[in-house]
Design a protein around this nucleic acid. Structure first.
Lengths: 127, 127
DNA sequence: TAAAAATTGATAATATATTATCATCTTTTT
DNA sequence: AAAAAGATGATAATATATTATCAATTTTTA
């Protein structure tokens, strides 16, 4: 990948504007608005390469396919909206997991996923 | 499912002795020690039925297939050992997620996954 | 105990996300 | 501008976990 194609730019543009990690499908939908006729294979191809280059980070949610967010974001967690299946990055972290670790285990990392309803979905219902 | 077959009993027995949710594959391996010739389809079939009956609970880990644990356990989270890919239930919960929730969102649920090394894997290395 | 019903195990089928193929189109190099 | 290299889009292929099929076995019922 030596060309910085408009397809690749559109994909990066999507991710940098997103509020959270996006699925290849979501990226394809949105980036296709910028680049007419964008193929899903191109999305997968570029995401894989961007991940290898360390420019995007994979994020996998239980029971869902892989999503992607820009690399280099500071420590954060995620909120999954059950209304629209979108994922949002959220700031902060309660820490204090050490009391949860079983005797003799070593903690290397952690992941928190919050589940609920996003504002858009709540607004939609309230109408 | 009206019969409480030895296959089904073996599956339940596995789960009730486990330290955390098990994959169908793991269950099959272990339960086959109790029931000679146990088929993987039987494991899937019974897990699905047990889940429908509310006797076991599905647990999905990012990037991994579905696992199962007994239903009715108190609030807890999970530890994934990167050494052996096993999942362990852990007690406790830091709470305090409300400050993480974006404006206008509603929190319904949460899930914490700790990643690291279990004691067996650390012991194995130390030798 | 014979007949009916339920379950099993082996394996084929399915669903889904991702990857490979390849002709075509773009960009770069000469 | 011509040739070479790279990337794309459509679609076929792949991998994997799960489910369906069905003959054989086991359990239950009469």
């Amino acid at each position: 990948m030596k060309h910085n194609t408009k397809q690749r730019q559109a994909i990066i543009h999507c991710l940098s504007r997103a509020r959270g990690p996006m699925s290849p499908y979501e990226i394809h939908e949105l980036a296709a608005e910028e680049v007419e006729g964008l193929g899903i294979a191109t999305v997968y191809r570029n995401l894989k390469l961007l991940a290898q280059e360390g420019k995007v980070k994979e994020f996998v949610l239980p029971g869902e396919g892989t999503r992607y967010e820009p690399a280099g974001l500071q420590h954060h967690h995620h909120f999954f909206c059950r209304g629209c299946d979108r994922v949002f990055c959220v700031e902060g972290c309660p820490r204090g997991f050490s009391s949860m670790i079983p005797e003799g285990f070593v903690l290397e990392d952690h992941e928190i996923v919050l589940y609920g309803q996003c504002q858009d979905c709540l607004d939609r219902r309230a109408v």
